[in-house]
Design a binder for these strands. Structure first.
Lengths: 398, 398
DNA sequence: GTGACTTTGTGCCGACACTAAACAAAATAC
DNA sequence: GTATTTTGTTTAGTGTCGGCACAAAGTCAC
């Protein structure tokens, strides 16, 4: 008597995000009867996705103690991959955002995207062979806007890739070449997305964005600024995957010219290079601009010139965030990269600027938080790969 | 043998928006079997919401001709109300966006919002008494941002209302006072929203926005600029109803100061007053600014000064729209008010500016269309009032 | 016209996800 | 030790929908 197919996906997502620690909570969250929740949990356990503790946890409260629901420790995984300016990283990620195995691979990124995509997939496939875990999908994060439905990288700025590189196709081909299995008998099909978008998804599921209904993420990488919006738990990437290109909001009308044709864009006014320049430093070639900017902020914040530069960047960032608040009206903002470091250095200043410059900020200001997840783009790539399973476990696992 | 409760809402919405002219199309659109679609149609007919033609329409194509599905002509209605700078308007609106009866009431708007809300509701209640139609809900459009979940009007700019007027409460109280019945036994509860938001909803259901998945609307009233976004058929109004306050995007860094503290905002650079000023006209007090701007554009577009002013405003509007395209990535843009008139005057110029200044505009540009619906805010208020019925007809009607 | 074909609509049955309600289990409360 | 509270399971039943066969109403070919 197998019951609960319709509620299976939502139930798995609740356990996955840690919002259903017991069957009793699951019952309440799903809005179904105890019988249904029990059947659903039993079926997810039979599928090998979750485990139900044999012995109830320490009671503490009144009534029959409940058995703990958790993600199955030895359960299936997805292959997660990330490509960034300094190289790549591959990992196996289980449900609950758990990193099961990682293969950091630092190297210079070649101009031919297929080489590095092959390499990162091969690294992931190696992890699969070592661990022997079942693989249900694969996701890749790239530092570029990814156009839908083509799956092409439009502006791989930090990489020396050609614009329009067909990253999804290359990823899927690499998965087939490396023999990475999908949920069925065929090879896995690769999910590919922008790194900031995927990081936002990860933060929403497992990090500082939990529980937000309208989550805005803004982050700097090495150059430029990326944005992402998670609406009701789903990534909003626009009609062709190109939404939240927030880098060209005007934040300094008299500012630097930008390649977009305007001046004083968020992109060129708040990225690591802008900060280093404002502080009067000439960036060196040894480590990444982001690293140099972070180091400067950490070690020399007492220096008035550094502090003034930070405040200048914060003011401009605040102007940009205020513009986004007026347009998107999020209930939470999460910052990553250099912006996160700037928030940590002086949280009040940024919050004050945003509240002052957004239309309704004075009545009820938006919480602005640092991101909390390590490797959030990587975890986000895994989240995207898990999505089909979370939507309909039975069809995928059958 | 009542079947098809789950698909009832989607089916009604398909008939309501004219996307399901026959049961065969309904079957395909719902993705169910013919049996289910037939049962659903029968139940909606039994509820008095739709009619199924007794005789099949002229065949034309091969196979058995299908019976026509349409909105029930004498079916229930909702009370729709709109308040604008020049007064108010009330109407009864049936399914399909059909205006069944209207009561235009022009007058000056008093500083006390409850007076005019009482008046517009009383006008609507009069229509209900005259026609004897069953009323299932009520919606009100106001020219102000409406904060959620409070239902207060934050910036009733064109009206002399106090900021923060509790319009939803006043509306609901007026409905009770006037004895407007809701779907159950109690009085109707009023739905209240910003006029541009509601207009966007109406255009999406019955106008130029049909079929768009990510629809952006931008419109000028008399002063300022409003925006709205319809995502997958649902209005996106942000976490507290304040999204798409697009008026403070910077479109002219050296421009006029704005009350928001910045300069050159879309609000002050592209509204009717900006156009009249740019054309060297001093606006008179006799008709509304919007009317004067439209008249000038229609009658004197040949005048080089007027044409240059129009092009200036179009260029600035294009810059603002390009910024929104970068952030929202819509698949269609609809313009209303003066912006609509400017688009009509020179469609190519605006499209070119948006394509040129948006990041990905050159590869695939966004269609920009004029709005097509008369009284779209009013119809939108009705749409919002119909929403509970469209979501779950059985619960509302019993 | 007549028959073949195409498309639409309906009746019947079964699958199945879920509810309802009674029962059972395991803790705390007094 | 008994009552109470909360959790979990069993059983029966309900309602929605898919599958399938059949019927209806047109066009097309000749």
């Amino acid at each position: 008597m197998e019951r609960g197919r319709g509620a299976l996906g939502p139930a798995l997502e609740l356990v996955h995000t840690g919002r259903a620690p017991t069957r009793a909570v699951l019952t309440a969250e799903l809005g179904v009867t105890r019988a249904t929740a029990g059947a659903v949990a039993a079926e997810l356990e039979a599928l090998g996705l979750i485990t139900v503790d044999a012995h109830p946890a320490a009671a503490g409260s009144q009534g029959r103690p409940s058995h703990r629901l958790s993600v199955a420790p030895g359960g299936p995984v997805v292959l997660a991959a990330q490509i960034h300016a300094d190289g790549f990283r591959a990992a196996l990620v289980g449900l609950g955002g758990r990193m099961v195995a990682t293969a950091p691979g630092c190297m210079t990124v070649p101009a031919d995207p297929s080489h590095i995509i092959d390499a990162v997939v091969e690294a992931g496939a190696g992890l699969l062979r070592e661990t022997g875990r079942r693989c249900l999908g694969a996701g890749l994060a790239v530092p570029s806007a990814v156009a839908e439905p083509d799956g092409t990288a439009l502006n791989p700025l930090h990489l020396s890739w050609p614009a329009g590189a067909p990253v999804r196709r290359l990823f899927t081909e690499a998965l087939a070449k490396a023999g990475v299995p999908g949920p069925g008998e065929g090879p896995a099909t690769g999910v590919t997305g922008n790194d900031v978008n995927l990081a936002a998804l990860a933060e929403h599921r497992h990090g500082a964005g939990r529980g937000a209904r309208h989550l805005l993420c803004v982050a700097t990488g090495h150059r430029g600024v990326g944005g992402a919006l998670v609406l009701d738990g789903r990534l909003h990437s626009g009609s062709s995957g190109l939404a939240l290109e927030v880098g060209h909001l005007t934040v300094n009308p008299a500012g630097l010219p930008c390649h977009c044709g305007s001046r004083g864009c968020l992109d060129v006014e708040t990225d690591p290079l802008a900060f280093l320049t404002a502080a009067g430093r000439t960036p060196g070639p040894e480590v990444s601009l982001l690293q140099q900017a972070r180091d400067l902020l950490r070690t020399e914040y007492a220096d008035p010139a550094v502090r003034a530069a930070a405040e200048l960047i914060v003011d401009r960032l605040g102007l940009g965030l205020a513009g986004l608040v007026n347009i998107l009206n999020p209930d939470r903002i999460i910052l990553g990269g250099l912006h996160r470091a700037l928030l940590d250095a002086d949280p009040e200043r940024l919050r004050a600027v945003v509240a002052d410059r957004s239309l309704w900020g004075r009545s009820g200001s938006v919480p602005i938080l640092p991101c909390t997840l390590d490797f959030n783009s990587l975890i986000g790539a895994a989240e995207a790969a898990w999505q089909p399973v979370l939507d309909d476990p039975l069809t995928v696992l059958g």
